[in-house]
Every structure is written in structure tokens, then in C-alpha cells.
Design a protein around this nucleic acid. Structure first.
Lengths: 117, 117
DNA sequence: CTAACGTACAACCAAATGGTTGTAGATGGC
DNA sequence: GCCATCTACAACCATTTGGTTGTACGTTAG
């Protein structure tokens, strides 16, 4: 994932209206104008928010008649999580801790013990 | 977590320079001026980036002599992840899957098996 | 066909962002 | 004490962002 991709992803998520739009678009049944009714702003403003989400790869649009249905990309959460994982890996080298959490028994997971890496 | 908190969190992460600063601040040994040497911008610019990270709760600063050491907040990744989780929960209703991951034994945690919810 | 609806997009504007320089306050070394 | 270093912060500037209105285009309903 390139820097610009991650930029767009986090930037799209850094707005309460856009996060709310995402929540409403899970089932892909909301048209842009339908969405616009839910917010105290113009249709064009909502359209722009959807465009930001689209450029970030968080939603896709699909025509149905004259409306445009907005649907969350199923892989979106995964990609956001992966971006976080890449950061976390760089930050702490926690790949091992992750695997331990997944594979080993609870007694070994105490973060206050053990060598630094 | 309030909307504004999540806004600040994702906004702070939506910049490649700030993400890179974070990666360098895991061990809390970097002063602001030492950080500034690493980037093709002024000291004040880096200072501002650090301030954004600080307001987002991603780093804390600690005086050592005349320098200010920047250190990543250990809980930062957790909070970012939690913000994503809250979105994912709203998106897909995955609360139950989360609880299963936390409460049950490893054999049940295979994501490839089991019903949709 | 015509009217209404849903969408797209351009132009415009205020506010925020990301950068700069400059100035001033603490702290440590000599 | 004095100077160099690290930091903080204000003022300024260009660009982006998030909103507006207006116009144009395709599609469906009547």
C-alpha cells in the first residue's frame, strides 16, 4: 500500500459525516440523494463526501435506473486494518506478540515481561 | 470515543510525515530537533506535526534537560484499532465475533468456519 | 413530448492545513 | 556571566477542504 493510498484512506475516515455515510451504506441500498436527505447540507456536499470515500476505495457506486446506489467495499475495513497493522509492526515489532496471542496460551502474553525484542 | 476524538485520530494518521514520525518515536529517544533533522522541512513544521500527533493522543512529550523527548503512547494503536472496530461493528454487526475472539478457546476462532453470525 | 427526478460538475467562498520566517524563553556548557 | 542549543509560538502565505449555488445532462413517469 502506497503512502498516498493510506493518506486517502485515513483522510476519508477522519470526518464524522463520512463515517456516518459509510455506516448507512453497508447494504448498498442508499442512493446519493437518499443519503443527502439525512444530513443538514446540500446534495452537492454529500456528493463530494461520497467522492472522497470513493477515491479512498471505501465505497463503490452502481447505477440502478436514474439513481446511483452507494455500497461499502467489503474489503475496506480489511485494508484500513492492514494500514494500522503495518504501522503497528513498524512501531513495536509486534508480529510475534500477535502470533502469540493467536497461537499460544494466555500465561505467555504478559507484556511486562520478556526481553525487548 | 467522541466524534471529535476519532476525527483527530484519523486526521493525524492521514499524513505520511506524521506516520513516519510515529515510527521513529517508539522508544521515546527522539527529541523534536533530532526528528526535524530527518525531514526536508523546517524545525517549526515538524514541531507542528508533533503537536497534531499530541492532540490526537498518539504521542506524549517528556522533558530531558533542554530537549523534549517524543514518545508514542503505548495505547495509541489500541485506540485507533478500537475506532475501526466501532465502525466495523456498525457496518457488519460483528460484536458477537469480537466476543468469540476474546472469550472462547482457540479452536473456535477459525474465521473460515461457522455461520455468518 | 414534457415535466420531474437524480446526478454530475463548475465556480465561488470561508476556514483549515501545511509550510515558512522571526522572535523570545529555558536550559546546559564553558 | 555568556553563548549556543532546544523549544515555543506568533505572523504570514499558498493550497486544500468543506460548504454553497447554479447549470447541464440522462432517465423515468405521465
Amino acid at each position: 500500500m502506497t503512502d498516498e493510498t493510506v493518506d486517502r484512506l485515513f483522510h476519508a475516515l477522519a470526518d464524522a459525516t463520512r463515517r456516518d455515510i459509510l455506516r448507512r451504506c453497508v447494504r448498498g441500498e442508499m442512493s446519493v440523494s437518499r443519503l443527502a436527505e439525512a444530513y443538514p447540507m446540500s446534495f452537492a456536499a454529500v456528493q463530494k463526501h461520497v467522492a472522497v470515500l470513493e477515491r479512498a476505495g471505501l465505497v463503490t457506486k452502481q447505477r440502478r435506473g436514474r439513481e446511483q446506489l452507494v455500497r461499502m467495499d467489503p474489503d475496506a475495513v480489511g485494508r484500513a486494518r492492514q494500514a494500522l497493522d503495518e504501522l503497528e509492526t513498524a512501531w513495536r515489532g509486534r508480529v510475534d506478540r500477535m502470533s502469540r496471542l493467536l497461537a499460544q496460551d494466555p500465561e505467555e502474553n504478559d507484556p511486562t515481561e520478556g526481553p525487548d525484542r
